[in-house]
Amino acid sequence: MEISFKGKRILVTGAGQGIGRGIAVELWRAGANIVALSRTRSHLETLQSEYPSIDIVDVDVADWDKTREVVESLGHFDALVNNAAIAICEPFLKCTASEFDKTFDVNVKAALNISQIIARKMVDNKTHGAIVNISSQASKGALKDHIIYSASKAALDALTRSMALELGPYGIRVNSVNPTVIMTEMAKVGWSDPVRANEMLSKIPLGRFGEVSEVVNAVVFLLSERASMINGVELPIDGGFLAT
């Protein structure tokens, strides 16, 4: 199934590495004009050195006003991927207000902020666009020491549903994907402990963690016209974790 985004302009946040980078590159390969946004300039420069036609912009999405200023200046987009996120993993009895605020600023408020700007321009330009939010299986099932992260992703799912309801009449589709552990370079380090890894793997019927490409492929499909009647879904990419 060939999917083309030729002539489409797409913003991908958190695009400096990991899943976001993979999404940006695959959409670029499908013909899209990509703007890759990240907090870390060096990651973006590495991406651009390999793919010079990808435009890059660095901003800390936790800064509401600065992000609004930067994203407003970028112009009109046909699609958006809200991938930027942080994970602060602490036990319930130890998590703090500052950790909560920091997580929600990035994982929820930034998605709201950026989506408002992009969607408003889609509406003004009568663009039947698409938005995909990168959520997590942690929004649906309890994971030890993930309480703030899980709450933020559950909020992102709720945001997805409300956006789908309110933007649908304008022809703008909004969906989320909810991956399990995905084997980014960072995850390979974080899940290298066999005891920790095996505990999670025992709950995944397919018996393995996901690959970046498996999230990327789902996002590309949801952004495309092949998914033209899919709106407001939260798609697990979890090997069956949530089915058990």
Results as ranks from 00 to 15, higher is better:
Thr160Lys: 06
Ala187Val: 02
Asn231Leu: 05
Leu93Glu: 10
Arg39Ser: 12
Ala97Ser: 11
Leu93Ser: 12
Glu72Asp: 13
Ala164Val: 00
Val174Phe: 02
Ser139Gly: 10
Val212Gly: 09
Thr46Cys: 09
Ala243Trp: 01
Leu206Ser: 09
Gly22Thr: 09
Pro91Gly: 06
Ile56Arg: 09
Ala164Pro: 03
Leu206Met: 12
Ala151Pro: 09
Ile34Thr: 11
Asp78Trp: 02
Thr103Ser: 13
Ser49Trp: 05
Asp101Pro: 00
Phe100Gln: 06
Ala85Leu: 09
Ile114Arg: 07
Ala36Glu: 08
Arg29His: 14
Ser162Thr: 10
Asn133Leu: 10
Ser42Ile: 10
Asp60Met: 13
Glu26Ala: 06
Gly141Ile: 06
Asp105Ile: 01
Asp193Leu: 02
Arg161His: 04
Met200Gly: 00
Pro179Ala: 00
Ser192Ile: 11
Ala15Gln: 13
Asp63His: 14
Leu37Val: 15
Arg39Pro: 11
Leu112Pro: 01
Trp64Thr: 07
Val61Met: 15
Lys6Thr: 12
Ile182His: 02
Gly141Pro: 00
Gly18Ala: 04
Ala155Asp: 14
Arg68Lys: 15
Gly239Leu: 13
Ala151His: 02
Asp60His: 15
Asn83Asp: 14
Arg161Ala: 07
Cys95Leu: 11
Thr13Glu: 04
Gly18Phe: 06
Val81Pro: 09
Lys6Glu: 15
Gly75Asp: 01
Ala30Ile: 02
Val25Glu: 04
Asn198Arg: 00
Asn198Leu: 01
Gly16Arg: 07
Ile3Arg: 13
Asp238Ile: 07
Arg196Pro: 00
Phe221Asn: 08
Lys188His: 06
Ala119Gly: 03
Thr180Glu: 06
Pro205Trp: 01
Leu93Lys: 07
Tyr51Trp: 14
Val25Arg: 05
Ser176Val: 04
Met183Val: 01
Arg196Tyr: 10
Ile117Val: 13
Ile86Asn: 14
Phe104Trp: 03
Phe5Val: 12
Gly22Ala: 11
Asp60Asn: 15
Val189Gly: 00
Ala158Pro: 01
Met200Cys: 01
Ser152Lys: 11
Gly239Asn: 10
Ile19Val: 09
Pro91Asn: 03
Thr40Leu: 12
Ile172Asn: 02
Ala187Leu: 03
Val57Thr: 08
Met183Gln: 05
Val59Cys: 14
Leu44Lys: 08
Asn133Asp: 09
Ala79Tyr: 09
Phe77Cys: 02
Ile23Tyr: 07
Arg39His: 15
Tyr149Phe: 15
Gly232His: 04
Lys94Asp: 13
Lys140Tyr: 01
Ile88Cys: 03
Leu167Arg: 07
Asn198Asp: 14
